[in-house]
């Protein structure tokens, strides 16, 4: 079973003559434990594809299946609690880490757990464990402003992993990092995909980082033009 299945997904912004096709007939599948990239230049539609899979941006046509459950078929399925699905099944990693500036590292992870109805004690325990596993045990009570770019991104990864999601969606996770930190983040994602059996879909235009991916989908002008299987 695939963790992510996208079938002929199309997203059109606007109507009539002003309509813009951001994504056209995109299809892809990601298996559990796989690290997959969507590669393409700015404006190619890769983030639109990610947001449609991430239940943020409603597809105009096509189907999205997450962890075996259909969530979109010619638009969102009626009666779906998108927030709950995002909370329980998806983890997000952002380009600029998007940590909440007024929460400490541990609180930034705990908030994702508390939103998912874990008790404070459980959340604290799991957040501590997660951050320690990412070598951030000594940074628990630091605010994001006191963390380096790499550390902040690792806290963001810990937050994305907090609820043990089946699917992790990452939007340019290495764009704000130098090459070394970027490579570290990529190897960390690869390790997590394998260990946690999560499907990780990464949007990137950073060709420096393509080596670590299992598969790469290249997007141009809203169309997936190439799929490359990498032997890693």
């Amino acid at each position: 079973m695939y963790s992510i299945e996208v079938d002929k997904l199309t997203k059109i912004y606007g109507k009539g003559e002003t309509a813009v096709k951001a994504i056209v007939d995109a299809s892809l599948q990601v298996r559990p434990g796989e690290l997959v990239a969507i590669l393409g230049p700015s404006g190619s539609g890769k983030t639109t594809l990610l947001t449609a899979i991430g239940l943020i941006n409603e597809p105009t046509h096509g189907k999205v299946i997450l962890d075996g459950a259909v969530v979109a078929d010619e638009g969102w399925l009626p009666g779906l609690d998108l927030k709950r699905i995002r909370r329980e099944k998806l983890g997000f990693i952002f380009q600029a880490h998007n940590l909440i500036p007024f929460l400490t590292a541990i609180e930034n992870v705990m908030i994702a757990l508390e939103i998912n109805h874990l008790t404070r004690t459980e959340a604290k325990s799991r957040a501590t464990e997660l951050l320690a596993s990412l070598n951030l045990g000594h940074r628990l009570n630091n605010y994001p402003s006191a963390l380096s770019g790499g550390e902040a991104q690792r806290v963001a990864i810990a937050r994305a992993l907090a609820n043990r999601p089946k699917v992790i969606l990452a939007d340019e996770p290495t764009a704000a990092l130098d090459t070394d930190n970027g490579k570290n983040v990529m190897s960390l994602l690869k390790k997590l995909a394998v260990e946690n059996h999560s499907a990780i879909l990464v949007v990137t235009h950073d060709h420096r980082m393509v080596e670590g991916f299992d598969r790469i989908f290249e997007v141009r002008d809203g169309v997936i033009v190439q799929e490359t299987q990498r032997d890693v």
Binding site: I100, I115, R159
Partner: peptide, 16 residues
């Protein structure tokens, strides 16, 4: 704004 958007993205309910 970005904090609120992030909270919404990670599934936070509006009441939070």
């Amino acid at each position: 704004i970005r904090v609120i958007a992030t909270l919404k993205l990670i599934g936070s309910q509006n009441r939070v």
